[in-house]
């Protein structure tokens, strides 16, 4: 079985977001870069399949040189090979999906795994777009995955519960928190990864879909007020204020 895992490098969740001088992109100063957490679940799932059923795992990332960190980490965790598609999707999920589809088209992957969304861009779109471009099945926001002979059965998170999706391989499966508990890289893995090379390819030219034309910080919230008194008085004052001032009730 051949598995492709698409990984995205994103700003850490604790990063303070600042807008760059161009008014439409993120100011990269002081930003710590990590592998998107949802992609880590995708990678862990691929490695577990490799361990239990046997598989060849290719880790892929679209980006510049800095994305190699994500791939080195993937190799240390157990990916067999790593590919950097050199290109800039500029936050356009359709562009990135086309780049990955162009690479993956003739490689015979049985399974393509990625996060259900890239942290930050929050599009939650690359996976389904890739599935459509490849003409294969999809299952998104997955918390459980079972593979059969040329088939899959996945549990997907929906409003107020979950649902079971069944389909045929090849498929694009996007991971949700809860799918597994990602491991840490072992020293042995890190050492072994140092011997592996990352294949670097120019990303295929793409048709743009949607692009960010401006990035702005949300307006500051007006200062609130603290409610005084003992617990009963505070509670009374709050419910009253929510009813009369905020008109929530």
């Amino acid at each position: 079985m051949k598995i492709l895992v698409a990984l995205k490098q994103v700003p850490d969740t604790e990063s303070k977001i600042k807008v760059a001088a161009d008014g439409k992109s993120l100011d990269p100063a002081d930003v710590k870069w990590i592998t998107s957490p949802y992609d880590e679940y995708a990678l862990e799932e691929a490695i577990r399949i490799k361990e239990t059923k046997g598989a060849e795992v290719t880790a892929l990332s679209v980006g510049g040189d800095s994305a190699k960190d994500v791939l080195k980490n993937a190799l240390a965790l157990g990916a067999d090979t790593a590919v950097l598609l050199k290109g800039d999707g500029q936050g356009d999920a359709f562009a990135v999906a086309q780049m990955i589809a162009a690479y993956a088209k003739d490689k015979g992957f049985d399974l393509i795994l990625c996060g259900n969304k890239g942290l930050g861009g929050d599009n939650a779109a690359m996976g389904p777009m890739l599935a459509e471009l490849m003409g294969v099945a999809q299952a998104n926001v997955i918390v459980k995955l079972e593979l059969g002979e040329g088939t899959f059965k996945a549990e997907r998170e929906i409003e107020g519960g979950s649902e079971i999706v069944e389909g045929a391989l090849p498929a694009v499966i996007t991971a949700q928190k809860g799918l597994n508990e990602p491991r840490y890289a072992s020293l042995k893995g890190i050492m072994a990864a140092k011997k592996k090379t990352i294949e670097e390819l120019e990303a295929a030219p793409v048709t743009a879909g949607a692009q960010v034309s401006a990035l702005a910080l949300p307006p500051e919230r007006p200062a609130g007020r603290k409610l005084e008194g003992d617990a009963a008085a505070q509670a009374q004052a709050l419910i009253q204020a929510l009813k009369d001032e905020a008109k929530v009730f």
Partner: peptide, 13 residues
Amino acid sequence: VYAGKAFATTSFA
């Protein structure tokens, strides 16, 4: 974007 830490104006090609 960034889970509400910023807002992106998006236009279509």
